[in-house]
Design a protein around this nucleic acid. Structure first.
Length: 664
RNA sequence: GCCAGCGUAGCUCAGCUGGUAGAGCUGCUGAUUUGUAAUCAGUCGGUCGGGGGUUCGAGUCCCUCCGCUGGCUCCA
């Protein structure tokens, strides 16, 4: 098939459908192609259609080609472009039946007697195996042949073909359909199914619990562990093992993220793409700065890479072939690009081009992926927990050998622990290993668990079915007892070779290093989810919610007893170098206190005649206590809470009377 | 994506079996100048998610699309 023809057709179709139906069929085909499994067919009623074979493809399996079938030319035909997608092999018979029915129905409606069956892989990016595709095409062909009034031309499978088409352009002349399998599997496919189940079984794993060494150390089956002191670890284990969830409520952070004017839905975008109000944006920026500081202090060299990549890039394409399900795809001129789902690609491509010697190892690249995109299924989205567009710190470390990889692994685990603690988050540890690796590295495993300082859930795989041999996860358990992974560190044994990343060793030989993937905090959006859920849990227990001081959008608020103290308040404002604001609105003090409490403001300073006369501050804190303090005393109390944490200015008007309302 | 529930003012929600929309909060205006979680009064504000249909008449019934939530699946 000639690419120019293909491009021309695509443009033409896009225009046709926009005019006729008001929506762009091609855009739809592209976006849906990554989440629906089925047979895709594109039906065109054509005045004329011709094709000729131009060469063999490498990906598919060309069969014997009869000279007479290498080209075709027909007038007044219904041309059926088809692509078999993964999933069809569940029941080839039923899919063939339904495709045949669709084709016959349309052919009758438009009165077409000539049919063209045209294998057209480009309708899908999630193709079935060529074997299944050919089988399906055979079955459809056989079924159609039984209708004697139809003349059928069949373009060969597994060849590049050029074609010309002249579409009639009437309302029924162009239709795109997806046929999904239904009914029970037929005999020939049962074997295939059970093979799939077999593959699934090798994924089965053993679950253990290992505790830090000590008096009551435990290392054994997860079922035999007493979870009495770690209820959340038990929740994680259940969640991982069974995947069952019980909840009719929506997660409390969703209400909080809106009520606190942090983040909100954006119906004007795609699902899972949120708008960030000033307070939320501030928290996000602080969190990003905080975690980036961990990465750069550790030696991560910060880079920035493109958010979109060539769909046809040979190396990236391999990756996508393996995980084809969920990308955003976009067109630029005639080329297809996918939006990155992590920083991996960009960094692999940089590392591939770098000159690296063993002197440079371990070599660490860091990026804050602002943004990463995953086209999650709509039903999988959940507030800030699961988004389609998210921000994530991504650190990639090249290591000389396994010893060095393990050494860096534990250092990164330490960073992750410190980082999550700084956010005020509790977490449960899960570590997943390929069994051989765990058995050959027992001291490493025990050391890792000890550093985490809590019992860890260990999963052991018999075989490596992903790119890593070891994966550490810190999981957060939310107010509805659901788990979400935050930090992770992984040892990748596959991608340096795939992306041809090399370093030069002591004897001048090129070697593939090992690669550590780490996200010190996990997704920044998800960190905010975890912070808000943590506060929801506190409130459920009757405690007051609070942001960690360094993250509080407003850290201090001055409330005057009356307008008369305006001047005194403004003097105090200028002497406090934190995010402080001033409630200068015309309302009662009681109301102002209430509103400040509802905003979780850590320090409320009430200023009236007594304070002005006495030269002290009256400080109300989250615990409800009121204390008389001097300014230096207050500053001395605040200072340690900011230690090692970033600071950014108040992103709102300081006078509240001048501040607009974003939500409510 | 599939199945289910939901979508009424900026926010939270009421509106029975179809008769043409209501409250509180917010906002605005005025009064009030307040001592630690809601001062009082007046007032603005609605293509009842979008489109189509049934009907003399639709927030209410039907279809369809969009969005949110839950479950399934998924989470490289």
């Amino acid at each position: 098939m000639g690419i120019p023809f293909f491009r021309g057709l695509r443009e033409q179709l896009k225009l046709c459908f926009k005019v006729q139906n008001g929506w762009g069929i091609w855009v739809d085909v592209l976006s849906d192609a990554f989440c629906v499994f089925g047979m895709r067919i594109l039906l065109i009623h054509a005045d004329r259609f011709s094709f000729r074979v131009t060469g063999e493809t490498t990906a598919a399996l060309p069969g014997e080609l009869d000279k007479s079938k290498s080209e075709g030319d027909v007038s007044e035909a219904l041309v059926v472009f088809m692509a078999a997608e993964k999933g069809d092999n569940a029941n080839v018979g039923s899919v063939a039946d339904r495709v045949t029915e669709e084709v016959l129905t349309l052919a009758a409606q438009i009165g077409a007697e000539n049919l063209v069956i045209y294998p057209y892989a480009h309708l899908s990016s999630s193709l079935s195996s060529p074997r299944v595709a050919v089988k399906l095409l055979d079955e459809i062909f056989t079924r159609l042949q039984s209708h004697n009034h139809l003349k059928i031309i069949r373009a060969p499978f597994g060849y590049y073909k050029a074609f010309e088409i002249s579409c009639k352009g009437h309302p029924l002349s162009e239709l795109a359909k997806t046929i999904t399998p239904s009914g029970h599997a037929d005999k020939a496919d049962e074997a295939e199914e059970s093979q799939a189940i077999k593959a699934e079984k090798t994924l089965e794993s053993e679950w253990m619990i290992m505790t830090p060494e000590g008096k009551s150390a435990y290392s054994g089956p997860a079922e035999g562990f007493s979870f009495a002191t770690r209820p959340n670890l038990q929740r994680l284990f259940r969640y991982e093992k069974s995947g069952s969830r019980i909840s009719e409520q929506s997660p409390p952070h969703i209400d909080l993220m809106r009520r606190m004017e942090l983040v909100d839905y954006e119906p004007g975008s795609d699902q899972g793409n949120f708008r960030w109000y000033p307070k939320g944006q501030l928290i996000k920026r602080l969190a990003e700065t905080y975690v980036s500081n961990f990465n750069t202090r550790y030696g991560g060299m910060q880079v920035e890479t493109p958010i979109m990549y060539d769909y046809q890039h040979p190396k990236l394409n391999l990756y996508l072939q393996r995980f084809p399900a969920r990308q955003y795809v976009l067109l630029s001129d005639q080329k297809e690009y996918f939006l990155r789902f992590a920083a991996c690609f960009g960094q692999y491509l940089i590392q591939h081009d770098m000159q690296i010697s063993h002197h440079h190892l371990p070599c660490k690249l860091y990026e804050l992926t602002h943004y990463s995109f995953r086209r999650e299924q709509s039903g999988e989205l959940a507030g800030l927990k699961r988004l389609r567009t998210f921000t994530m710190p991504d650190l990639h470390t090249l290591a000389k050998d396994m010893e060095q990889a393990k050494e860096e692994f534990v250092r990164q685990a330490d960073l992750a622990i410190e980082c999550l603690e700084g956010f005020g988050l509790d977490f449960e540890v899960a570590i997943r290993f390929v069994r051989d690796f765990a058995e050959q590295n027992k001291p490493f495993v025990q050391d890792l668990v000890s550093r985490c300082g809590r019992p860890a859930l260990i999963e052991l795989w018999e075989e490596r079915s992903f790119y890593f041999v070891a994966k550490l996860e810190f999981n957060f358990i939310d107010a509805l007892d659901k788990a979400a992974c935050l930090s992770t560190v992984q040892i990748d044994v596959e991608n340096p070779e795939r992306f041809d990343i090399t370093y030069v060793d002591e004897s001048g030989e090129k070697q593939h290093p090992l690669l550590l993937h780490a996200s010190i905090s996990g997704s920044v959006d998800r960190v905010l989810y975890a912070i808000l859920e943590t506060q929801a849990i506190r409130m459920k227990r009757g405690q007051k919610a609070a942001f960690p001081f360094w993250l509080a959008p407003v850290q201090l608020r001055i409330i005057p007893v009356s307008e008369k103290f305006d001047k005194a308040c403004r003097e105090i404002l200028s002497g406090i170098p934190y995010r402080i604001d001033y409630d200068d609105r015309d309302s009662s003090m009681g109301r102002k206190i209430r509103e400040a409490e509802r905003e979780w403001i850590p320090y409320i300073l009430v200023v009236g005649a007594k304070e002005v006369a006495g030269g002290y501050l009256n400080v109300r804190t989250r615990d409800g206590a009121q204390r008389k303090m001097t300014l230096p005393e207050l500053l001395a109390e605040i200072e340690p809470q900011m230690k090692g944490k970033p600071f950014l200015e108040l992103p709102l008007p300081q006078d509240i009377a001048r501040r607009p309302i974003f939500v409510g």
